[in-house]
């Protein structure tokens, strides 16, 4: 039964079942002990970071995870200073990194880039975000945070708020959370930013009890988990439309007065102003806790992939 992760690519949260996620979460529990320490289980292993798109949190947490496991890190975090700027293809860049490293972590603006890289590389490839599509390790962190705060994810009512059309974290979270038998899943967004067709078709096929709505206030009292994502201004053809939407989806203390006592609020961060600072002091705010699981979860994942059992 073991070896579920050994040598495996991580392209989509969809590719992992609950049993596998449970193994990962148990390993993450273990890794919490080394959050600020070191455990030399990946000594001599090299992780290549191929970040074609800017990132701070994801890149640094992968890097920290590898260093705490005793491994080394190579790579780039912008294309300007690399041969990609000279016109090298993604395929050739991946072939090169494949020959240097034991695992490749890739972020790219092009959709399907991680899957393509995984087809080329012999070493495992981890998707750290491909365009608007997938961000599997973020979804793993999100699910782990819920698991830490509730006895079970089954039976919860979950809301996902914001840009569900272009947001890869939101999309991956929807895929991840619908592996569990939710009481209900609310997809809360302006009409322009509703979840993409392939996401909805998957929810239907899985028989998930979901509802698309624009009205956060109307359903806030039902939620156990609210996953907030940023709405980007540039997605709106009309700036006044954006201002309207932005206001209606701002999480404030007064909005939360009708919320359940147990409600937890998650956010993949960085946030701009979609969650008011006053909310940070409420019992609902779990986004900093969520962010703190980034390193231990990625440690657990790297350990399972590279060290096997």
């Amino acid at each position: 039964m073991k070896e579920m992760f050994a040598g495996r690519d991580v392209i989509r949260i969809l590719d992992f079942d609950r049993e596998e996620l449970e193994e990962l979460f148990n390993e993450t529990d273990e890794m919490l002990r080394y959050k600020k320490g070191k455990i030399d289980i990946l000594k001599g292993k090299v992780m290549a970071l191929a970040f074609f798109e800017p990132s701070t949190r994801t890149r640094l947490s992968f890097q920290t995870a590898m260093l705490r496991l005793g491994g080394s890190v190579i790579g780039f975090s912008e294309v300007r200073t690399t041969s990609i700027a000279k016109g090298e293809t993604l395929a050739d860049t991946i072939r090169m990194l494949d020959s240097y490293s034991d695992v490749i972590v890739i972020r790219h603006s092009v959709e399907g880039a991680a899957r393509f890289a995984a087809e080329i590389a012999e070493v495992p490839v981890i998707n750290a975000g491909d365009g608007t599509r997938h961000h599997p390790t973020q979804a793993m962190i999100d699910l782990y945070t819920i698991r830490r705060n509730f006895e079970s994810i089954d039976g919860l009512t979950v809301g996902v708020l914001g840009d569900l059309k272009y947001g890869r974290a939101a999309t991956s979270f929807i895929y991840g959370v619908s592996k569990y038998r939710l009481k209900k899943l609310f997809l809360i967004s302006p009409p322009l930013l509703k979840a993409r067709r392939e996401v909805i078709e998957r929810l239907k096929a899985q028989g998930v009890n979901y509802e698309e709505t624009e009205d956060l206030e109307g359903i806030i009292s039902e939620l156990d988990v609210l996953y907030v994502t940023r709405i980007q201004k540039e997605r709106f053809p009309d700036p006044t439309e954006y201002e309207k939407v932005k206001g209606s989806y701002r999480i404030t203390a007064s909005l939360l007065k009708d919320a359940k006592k147990e409600l937890i609020i998650l956010h993949p961060l960085p946030r701009v102003d979609e969650i008011a600072n006053e909310v940070d002091r409420t019992r609902h705010a779990k986004y900093f806790e969520q962010a703190s699981y980034g390193v231990p979860l990625r440690m657990a994942l790297l350990k399972l992939i590279l060290a096997g059992e």
């Binding site: 016109g87 293809t89 993604l90 395929a91 603006s109 092009v110 959709e111 399907g112 880039a113 899957r115 393509f116 365009g131 608007t132």
Partner: peptide, 14 residues
Amino acid sequence: INPRCITNQPREPV
């Protein structure tokens, strides 16, 4: 049909 798909990137062998 998605212009941002890897299969629509020029020169990538896919």
